[in-house]
Amino acid sequence: MKRDFAIAVKAVIVKDEKVLVLSRSQDEMNCSYMNNKQKWDLPGGGLHFYEHAQDGLCREIKEETNLEVFVGEPVSLFDVIKNHIHLCIFTYACRWKGGSVALSEEHDAFVWMTKEEVTLSALPNWMKRDLLRALDRDKNVQKGEIE
């Protein structure tokens, strides 16, 4: 029995006290081996062998959204074990540095959401948790409480 292991990185990008949420294209959902039902997504993807997590995250963000970011600290680690594949997903709090959103073919729409919009949304609980954590940490950075 073949078994595989992969590492993915995701970003919660904060800009003007809002977070970026992406909508996956139907083609992307259809070809997904791990998750073909979840419409909502965060920028990110799989790391290449020998690629540092922050470098891979910046590459994926640029490919998927055309944005540049400052990468902050991790907000979560999630393990997915399914169909003989073990995937570890590290999600980082990031702050927008520059650029305008230009989506790749992996996504068909995006929205910048406030904390209140996240709380009231129908997003999955894991995503709400990560979005709210990043918003709270970004607020602390802006106050100068965390470097």
Rank of each mutant, 00 (worst) to 15 (best):
M1Q: 11
D4A: 09
V9Q: 00
K10P: 00
V12F: 02
V12R: 01
K15E: 03
L20W: 05
L20G: 05
V21A: 11
S23H: 14
R24V: 10
M29H: 02
M29Q: 10
M29F: 03
C31S: 15
S32R: 04
S32C: 11
Y33C: 07
M34S: 14
W40G: 00
W40K: 00
W40N: 05
P43L: 02
P43Q: 02
F49G: 11
Y50S: 03
Y50H: 03
Y50E: 05
H52V: 08
A53V: 12
A53G: 15
A53L: 07
Q54V: 12
D55V: 08
C58K: 10
R59D: 04
E63C: 10
T65D: 00
T65A: 02
N66P: 14
E68P: 00
E68Y: 02
F70Q: 13
V71D: 01
E73P: 00
P74F: 03
P74M: 06
P74A: 01
V75L: 07
F78Y: 07
F78D: 12
V80Q: 15
K82F: 08
N83L: 12
N83M: 12
L87T: 11
L87M: 15
L87I: 14
T91Q: 03
K97S: 08
K97L: 13
G98W: 03
S100M: 08
A102K: 08
L103Y: 02
M113C: 01
K115L: 06
K115N: 05
E116F: 00
E117F: 11
E117H: 14
V118I: 07
V118D: 04
S121C: 13
S121N: 14
L123E: 03
L123G: 04
P124V: 08
W126T: 06
K128Q: 09
R129I: 11
L132I: 15
A134I: 02
A134Y: 08
D136A: 15
R137A: 15
D138Q: 06
N140H: 15
K143H: 07
G144F: 14
E145F: 12
E147H: 10
